[in-house]
Amino acid sequence: MVTSSQPVPPLGLTLSHLSHSYEMPSGARSVLDDVSLDVEPGEFIALIGPSGCGKSTLLRLVAGLETPDTGTLLADGASITGPDPSRIIMFQDPTLYPWRTVHSNISLGLDIRGEKNPEAVAAAIRLVGLEEFSRAWPHQLSGGMAQRVALARALINSPRMLLLDEPLGKLDSLTRLAMQTKLYRLWKSQGFTALMVTHDVEEALLLASRVIVFSPRPARILADIHVDWPEPRHREDPRLQSLRAHILEQLETGISPLATA
């Protein structure tokens, strides 16, 4: 259950030769093209690429919400065949259930599995600092608070891997900064592997231990960058600035594959 003192063993991931396409009226549209990636347990990986390039599809495949056309996905060596509470996905929209209060939105995962654990729910609410709002309805929350509820709803499942599909994409810039810190601290304390899609290069370099740069659709991996300088990281850090410029250049051209940094 969720307590900051009790980390879960993080999940490792092996993706090999993943390809995927969607049926469109105009024919099959390929979104992933031969993507292979190894994720060590406990890594924080940022996936960056032009919008619509297939990063979100990659997350859905890892979550088990869809199955790839070809290629294999292994979580800790076991094949991913469907969704599992150890791999929780979080979307750009909070997607809270409007008919449930904050409290019962957070306890969703427990309800689904028929578990009762009021202490865990209370702990999750405390973790995101929403004690006063536990009886509020989702429509009474601001965007940042709603996303924090979504975060607590994910964490109550003690996920071994958190799949973040641009979770901060729609927040205003101040809320966004606060949420980045929150997310980073939770990753540090809860011990899950994180896979985050983002369009914000700076955000990726601040939070992630590894940044994967994708080409335009169908997504191929252009670069795999280890961000290994120590914390705390600062936006003004010259290393961050130069790496940021480098990645942006990659995204603009999007053609020449770069060797692993």
Binding site: A63, L65, P83, D84, I88, F91, D93, I112, R153
Partner: peptide, 13 residues
């Protein structure tokens, strides 16, 4: 909203 189903499915519904 299909995301409502996805949220529940990812938690094992």
């Amino acid at each position: 909203d299909h995301a409502y189903y996805d949220v529940a499915r990812t938690m094992g519904a």
